[in-house]
């Protein structure tokens, strides 16, 4: 599904990604772990097309299509979703309005009909129930005055509603207590399917106890320094990132 080859990217004048190569097949969940400053968030922004993140070399394709040639909203319409580390507040726009606008924008881009109001409401109630989100919260402006945990839950809510194919979770566990973490992880796990792929970016192994990855990659100094099974995450938890940081 997602294929990244020798990706180099810089922010301002600093090169952050230095030849990153990664294959993420459909149906799999891969974790990206690494020390602070290794380029984890940069990777998520480069893949989603944020302005200011310049690709200087290499490729990234989604089902063979050149991802890097597309505008951010076009990538979203292809099924790429980023759960933000720091979700933004959108004053004056109720969460429901926001999500429905996004769904319809994506549907329009794909040449599909708009979601009907009853269909949308039914789905919203279901998903909100699963994520233990109070339905009234969805009528409030998106993320305005929400706690850190509520914001993260809203990210997962949006993800479930938009039903993307390639999911990137950027430090989704940060700021979550253990109960909230379980709810969020359950929400993510419910989205696992043979035609979806997930990239879980995290600093700590904790999240991976709840979202079990098929593969773990260590990102250090702008490239994948090691790859392995779930056991690699435990090793990192015990021994830290030192040896990878040094090797780089």
């Amino acid at each position: 599904m997602l294929s990244i080859n020798n990706l180099h990217a810089r922010v301002a004048e600093a090169e952050i990604l230095k030849g990153l190569t990664l294959d993420l097949p459909a149906g799999e969940v891969h974790a990206i772990m690494g020390p602070n400053g290794a380029g984890k968030s940069t990777l998520s922004y480069v893949l989603t097309g944020r302005q200011g993140y310049e690709v200087t070399e290499g490729t990234a394709t989604l089902d063979g299509e050149d991802l890097l040639a597309l505008e951010p909203h076009e990538r979203a319409a292809r099924g790429l979703f980023l759960s933000f580390q720091y979700p933004l507040e959108i004053p004056g726009v109720p969460a429901m309005t926001f999500i429905r606008t996004a769904i319809n924008a994506q549907r329009k881009a794909r040449g599909e009909p708009e979601v009907s109001a009853p269909e949308f409401l039914k789905r919203a109630r279901e998903v909100a129930g699963q994520l233990k989100i109070d339905f009234d919260m969805l009528k409030r402006p998106l993320n305005v005055g929400f706690s850190g945990g509520e914001k993260k839950r809203m990210e997962i809510f949006q993800m479930a509603m938009l039903s993307p194919r390639l999911l990137i979770l950027d430090e989704t566990d940060s700021g979550l207590d253990i109960d909230a973490l379980k709810i969020v992880a359950d929400g993510v796990n419910a989205l696992r399917s043979p035609d979806r792929a997930m990239l879980v970016i995290t600093h700590y192994q904790r999240l991976l106890d709840y979202i079990r990855p098929d593969k773990v990659h260590v990102l250090a100094a702008g490239r994948i320094a090691a790859s392995g099974g779930p056991e690699l995450a435990h090793e990192l938890e015990r021994e830290g990132y030192d040896k990878y940081a040094r090797a780089a």
Partner: peptide
């Protein structure tokens, strides 16, 4: 903010939208 704009665009809206 550019942050807000990018957040909304990542959800599927063009810059103008």
């Amino acid at each position: 903010s550019d942050d807000q704009l990018f957040y909304v665009m990542q959800r599927g809206l063009s810059q103008e939208e």
